[in-house]
């Protein structure tokens, strides 16, 4: 490795370790100062890591399925927001504004206890894996909820592409879907990517709510099962839980930053207008 990069890396590590130490000392001294007798027993808490490892897989599964639903629904709603027939745009707008303004948990409750009573889905199999009611409704609820955010992001991205590009595509005889697929969406993606990553991160975080309707063995559910009075390492357990979520989310942010910088190159490729 380049020695300058290495030195920079070490320096940043040092800086952040120091900052973390200072932060922890401040918080710790406030609360231990009040007279806490809690003793940290990390070694005992860390024996339960296998619970977390099981949970993280379920969390990722929940995330992937809801992301697929959210992305496809979001694109459909965004396109509906752009149709020439105004009532359809208004209908799509209503959809967006209702779901954006509700807590994710309330959407989950509505879908699971509301629609779940009316529409009878017991299980669903794909790729040789079987998913139960709670899983299915959670995935649908989160997918619908986040699709309302994604729809607005997609719409803004599509509208950011210059009108002349649409004209050029139409002049070459392309129809609506061809113009979208070959010309608009690839260019809109650059604008869409950063906020979309934010939504994906939010989606990972939302999956934690599933334990409130019964749970499917995801990370948070696992820790709720772990933290019983006979295992009094709650502080440690929840700290580890937070670390597990960070381990999913931080790589996502990094990936997005990397993609962004790659796409930045093509940004420079942008045609000079005016």
């Amino acid at each position: 490795m380049n020695s300058r990069v290495l030195r920079y890396f070490l320096w940043m590590t040092f800086r952040f370790t120091l900052a973390a130490a200072v932060l922890i000392t401040i918080v710790g001294s406030i609360f231990w100062g009040i007279g806490s007798t809690y003793s940290l027993e990390w070694d005992k808490a860390l024996k339960f890591l296998s619970w977390y490892n099981k949970g993280i897989l379920v969390t990722i599964e929940l995330f992937i399925f809801s992301a697929i639903i959210a992305l496809s629904l979001g694109l459909i709603v965004a396109l509906l927001r752009l149709v020439p027939f105004a009532p359809v745009r208004d209908l799509a707008g209503l959809y967006i504004h209702i779901f954006r303004n509700l807590p994710a948990l309330v959407v989950l409750l509505l879908f699971f206890f509301g629609l779940g009573q009316v529409i009878d889905i017991q299980s669903f199999s794909i790729f040789g894996r079987n998913y139960g009611r709670i899983f299915i409704w959670s995935v649908i609820a989160f997918g619908v909820y986040e699709s309302s955010y994604l729809a607005e992001i997609f719409r803004a991205g599509i509208q950011s592409v210059h009108k002349t590009q649409i004209e050029a595509a139409q002049s070459l005889g392309m129809g609506y879907f061809q113009t979208m697929g070959y010309v608009i969406l690839p260019q809109a993606f650059r604008v869409i990517l950063p906020p979309m990553t934010g939504i994906m991160v939010a989606l990972v975080k939302e999956t934690a709510l599933v334990y409130l309707v019964g749970g499917v063995g995801d990370l948070t559910y696992q820790v709720r099962q772990l933290a019983i009075p006979s295992r009094p390492y709650v502080f440690e357990f929840y700290t580890i839980l937070a670390a597990y979520y960070l381990s999913i989310v931080i790589p996502m942010s990094l990936l997005s930053q990397w993609l962004e910088s790659r796409l930045g190159i093509s940004k420079a490729r942008r045609q000079v207008v005016d």
Binding site: F16, S36, Y38, K205, T220, T239, A242, Y245, V249
Partner: peptide
Amino acid sequence: TLYVHSLRNIPFIVFVLFMYFGFARAVLP
């Protein structure tokens, strides 16, 4: 930076559980 990024990237529910069960109930006298 540490404060912002460590809180932004965990689910709020995890933070609530941590604050109440992991901290207030467990650690405080």
